[in-house]
Every structure is written in C-alpha cells, then in structure tokens.
Write a protein that binds this DNA or RNA. Structure first.
Lengths: 346, 346
DNA sequence: TATTAGCACTCCCATTCACAGAGTGCTAAA
DNA sequence: TTTAGCACTCTGTGAATGGGAGTGCTAATA
C-alpha cells in the first residue's frame, strides 16, 4: 500500500500540477517539497506510484500527471483538514446577503458570483417544494377553461402554471375551490395535505369534480414532478481555461448544462450524501462529464433545500473552490450575521 | 458608384464566402457566377471594389473577403426579395406552439430552438409590462414589514417582488390596499392607472401613507424600471463555429449575454424600428459585439410585445437565419394555425 | 538495505527551410 | 473593353534539426 512518502509525493504532484498545469518532474518535487531527498529517490517512488495508478506519464521522458485516483487522495486530505478562510470581496458577500429575500434571485446571483470568483461554472438547484409550507393558493380564470394555478410558498417563492381544465369553471367556482384548498393547505406542506385534499375537495365540489381532480393533479405536478429548479451562471469564465481548450468537449458540457435533466442528475448525485460532495472526473459516469469535477453542497435557504456547486476541470483548484463555496453557502444560509433575519409569521 | 456587375460580384463574393469561409478568388467567381466573363475581368472589378471598401484582401496574394459594407448590400438584397420557406422540423414547431400558453416558457423554448436550428445564439426579450392589462394585484405579508407584491398580467405572466416597507402593515391592511388598488387597476394597464393610483391610494389609507407610497413605487419599479425580461438559449451551438475560434472574443460575448443590461441594449437597438432588423458587425458600436451580427424581430405573444432574435458571426447565413426566425415568430404570434386560440375574457 | 550521483537515452517542441499552390497585378493583344 | 499570359507574392505544410527536460538504469555510497 501507500507509504508515508508515497503519499507526500502524490500530494505534492497534485498540488503542483493544479498550480502549473504542466507535468511534474522528480527534480521539481525534490527541490520544492521533499528537500531532504534527492530527485533519484523521488523517481523511484514515482515509478511505484505509476504502477499503482496514482500517476501517469503522457510520454516517456515527460514529468508525471496525477490520475483521478490521486486527485481523490488529495481532495480527501483537504476535506479532512481545516481550510483557510477564502479571500472573497466583502462587497459581493454583502450583495448576496441583500438578495436573500428572493430565493431564486439569490441563487442566480450565487452562481454568477461563484463563476466569477473561481473561473469555473456556478450551478444551483432549488429543492422540491413539496416540503415547503404553502402560504397561498389561488386559481385565476384566464380564458375558456384555462386557469392559472398560483402557489405562494414560504420564502417568497412562487410557482405558477397555466392549465387547461376539462370543463369551464367560473371565477366564482374557482374562488370556492381556492377557499376550500386554502382552508386545508395553508400553513402546511404539500406533502402533508396532498392525500387529504384529493378526497375532500372533489366531494365538496362534485359539480366540478373532473376539473378539480385535474387542477389538483396539476398542482401535484408543479410541486413534485418537477422537484428542482436549476440555475447556472458564469459559464463564460471557463472559456479562458487551458483545460477546456478542446472546444468539442466544452460544447458537450455547455449543452448538458442547458438541459434540466442533466443538472438534475448532478444534484441527485450530491443530495443523497451529507454536506460537501466532490465528484472527480468520471467517478460518476452517469453525469456524462468525464473531464469535469464537481463540488457541491446543500444548504437551506428560504425554508427550502438548495444545492449549490461548482463545475470545473478535473485539474481544478479544489481547496479554493471548496472554501469559496462554503463561504457562499454560509451566506445563503444566513450564518455569521449580525443583523437578525425576519422572524417568520404564521 | 456601383455598376450592375460590381453588385453582382459583391453578392457573389458574400454568398460564396458565407458558404466556404475562405477568401474568394476571381477564378471562383468567374467559374461559378459570371460564366460569360473571364477571371481577369472580375479581377479588375474586385480591385475597384476593394478601393470602394466592399472587399478586402487579408494579404497580397489571397482572395477577397467581404467587408461589413458588402454584407449590408447582401442583406438588403435578401430583405427585399422573397425568401424560401425554411426547412424546420414540424415537430419542433408544433412543440413551440404547444408551449404558447406560458409566454416565458415559450420564449425559452424559442431561443433554444433557434440556437439548435441555426447553430447561432437565440435571444429573446419580453416587452415592458406597463402596457399589459393587470388581472390581479395582491400584497402578501411575509414577515416583519416584508411584503410580497404580486402582479398577475394578462397572458399568464406573473411579476412578483419581495419588498420591505417602512412600517409593519397587517395582512388586513394589505388586503385593504389590494382591494383599493384592484378596484382602480384591474382590467387596465399600469401605464393607464399609474398616475391615478399614486394620489388616490395614499389618501385612502393615510395611516399607512408611507408604506403605500413605497409599495406603489416598488410596483412601478417592477413594471417600468425593469421593462424587459431576457432569455438566451443554445449558446453552446456557437462553440463549433470556426468564426469563434478566438476564445477571448467568444468569452466577451458570452459574458455580455449574461448581463441583462447588454441584452437590453440589443433589444432597444431593434425595437425602435419596425419589423425585422439586422445589425452587422459594429454597425451599432454601442452593442460592443464588433464581430457579431444580430438578426432580430418583434412580435406580440400573450398580449405582450416580444423581441426574438439570433446572434451569430458576421459571416452568418443571413438568408436561412432570417427565414427561420420569421417562421418561429409566426408560430409565436399564432399565425397560420388551424386551431383557434382561446378567446380572452374580461 | 536504502539512497544517491552519473550518464546515456528518449521524446517533445520550437525553429528553420524549402516548396507547392493559389491568387494577384500588370502588360500586351484581341 | 475584355482577355490571355506571365512574373511575382504570400501562405501553409512537411521535413529536418537541435535544444531541453526528464527518465531509467547502474554503480557507488551511507
């Protein structure tokens, strides 16, 4: 297995490679990191490490490049120890804090901020609304059997959808429906009231039973079927990185980021685990981003679960990325604040 | 000025250059477009055209490349004549038609569709809401002096904003405010009722005068200060184009597209004019995209003005872009449909 | 036994050079 | 006014070259 010095060499190679992007030679390691050993010794270690698949050579007579396995060791080491406080402009943090009133806006800003600070791509997802307390339910008649379903959730979040019902309901009937649904649902989450509503409302408004059924189904869809809302920001920052000089690859990534489905996978990949989660390269082949690493973490803002993260090259600056992300998450969650946030009302 | 043959040469060079991307030599023109003239003759014409700044040579012994001035002549010619019906998958058009219920969703889809079909970047903007009829106004208390202002506009569009008022209003007082504002505003546009409201509501609820003033100001801001909503789609399509092989330039463009401000300029640039509007290269230096051309046109969907367009390289396929855009716009506006759209109610 | 110095070897990459090819401008003839 | 012919210019490509960085191996050393 890995000896102490093997480990030191791996960490040194990863560290240096992240900094320079060039293959790292034995001389460099001996000079900068293990001053009491000669290059020849390091060379032997490196040969071992190559056999164990922690390092590889792009060609004979080149330095070594870390494999995903080496990055994993490196990242685990970072996660274990204390990270330095990242230098992030206080102005930006304050701006982000100021936007917390509107969760969506805050997340859009957070992704752009993350992108700008790290030169990687910021992503965010807003968790399923079904756990969030409903504050208001309205059905507004828009046209012939077309109705706008409007849900106000705690945290200033609004979901709405225009739906077509099987029969034309008057605004009065819809108000009646709103009232009945409200009585039961307001102050509770959709998950709690879902079952109750299905049976109750239909009986009470039997004349419109079909329409009510379909309206409730749409609400259900709004709150559960499309459980995450996605945001990406700062995609352009990544264009300058040498790691993404292969345009074809970059194009694939950008295309993936435009589909909600693949960000969905991204989030699911992370949200099952606790806290911070780093995926290196093709550790999760389902994500279809073999040349990218993903740093994600979840938090709670505006009463909803949110997942925020960064997508960068495998050779990304994990230390900085992680600490910047932690700082942003803290700000979103409202930790370390002097001003108390508004207390919730009913 | 330009003789008939000068014009033919210009059009031929632009046409061929758009197709190949390589400098065009006199031989090519003589062989493919002006078969009754020899290459030497064309060469003379080309020398003239170079002097008149319609063409230029990247170096002495290379073919000619069109200047923006030549593209302008070409585009004007296209705009004047009948364009061929573009080959766009009927499935996509049907999909787009199906999404028309929700204006925002439709525009998001439209931009992605445009991007995918043309390999350029789709952009869209949804026009100012102040001309749109208000359907509902609500103020919902979210917390201590925090209020959610909610505006439902015709066309299924919702604007909302969480605002902080100078004093804590109860939900009852807010309901009163909603009711009063509704009485005056429902069924009219913000532009119509703006003045009336300012003076009326404050008197009626003098106890909360300050708060009302500030609430109305926020509504005003929501409907006028931020008059456009922006969408971009299919940005990744452009990564494969040889014209954007300069990553630095591409990065600038992508960064611009992430700021609402610059898309705002884009839209203003177009929306003052009637119908279809093509901006080539730095024809409008304010847009800060000297290497891009922009094809935009406006339409009306869901009762609101929308501007939809394409951003591509100067060497873009104008003919196809314009006709695809026209097709998409028609679909958004609901022309050429068999199924009648829902009639509007009250 | 582990470490190190020395050395020959490998491979990459930037530079140089020559050359084919495409296209021009000019001139003189039709 | 148009065209054929020709010398000239410039680019892009491919081969040849040499420097440089880094390795693996061996033999000497602690």
């Amino acid at each position: 297995m890995l000896t102490e010095r093997h480990l030191e060499v791996v960490l040194a190679v990863v560290y240096e490679y992240i900094k320079t992007g060039e293959p790292i030679g034995s001389r460099t390691i001996a000079r900068k990191f293990l001053r009491d050993r000669s290059a020849a010794t390091i060379r032997n270690e490196m040969a071992d490490l190559e056999e164990m698949e922690y390092l590889y050579q792009p060609h004979t007579s080149a330095g070594r490049i870390p494999t995903p396995k080496a990055y994993r060791v490196y990242v685990d080491a970072i996660l274990r120890r204390q990270r330095p406080f990242p230098s992030v402009s206080e102005g930006w943090i304050r701006e982000l804090r100021g936007r917390r009133k509107d969760v969506e806006e805050a997340l859009v800003y957070a992704t752009r901020l993350l992108g700008r600070i790290t030169s990687y791509i910021g992503v965010a997802a807003l968790g399923p609304a079904q756990e969030t307390v409903l504050q208001r339910v309205e059905f507004l008649r828009m046209g012939h059997s077309t109705v706008l379903v409007l849900l106000v959730l705690r945290g200033g979040l609004i979901h709405h959808k225009t739906v077509t019902l099987p029969c034309d309901m008057t605004q009065e009937a819809l108000d009646e429906l709103s009232r009945r649904v409200s009585t039961i649902a307001i102050g509770r989450s959709w998950a709690e009231v879902r079952g109750t509503l299905q049976s109750y409302v239909e009986d009470a408004l039997e004349r419109y039973a079909d329409s009510c059924r379909s309206a409730l189904k749409e609400m259900d869809g709004l709150l559960t079927e499309q459980p995450f809302q996605f945001f990406t920001g700062g995609t352009h920052n990544v264009l300058g990185l040498p790691d993404f000089s292969d345009l074809g690859r970059l194009q694939t990534i950008m295309a993936l980021l435009e589909e909600d489905e693949s960000i969905g996978k991204l989030v699911r990949n992370c949200s099952t685990e606790r806290g911070l989660c780093v995926t290196i390269g093709d550790e999760n082949p389902e994500l279809k981003m073999p040349d990218c690493s993903i740093v994600m973490a979840s938090t709670v803002t505006g009463g909803r679960k949110a997942v925020v993260g960064l997508i960068g090259p495998v050779r990304m600056d994990y230390e900085r990325s992680i600490s910047v992300l932690e700082r942003v998450l803290e700000t979103l969650a409202g930790k370390n604040e002097n001003v108390k946030s508004d207390e919730e009302v009913h």
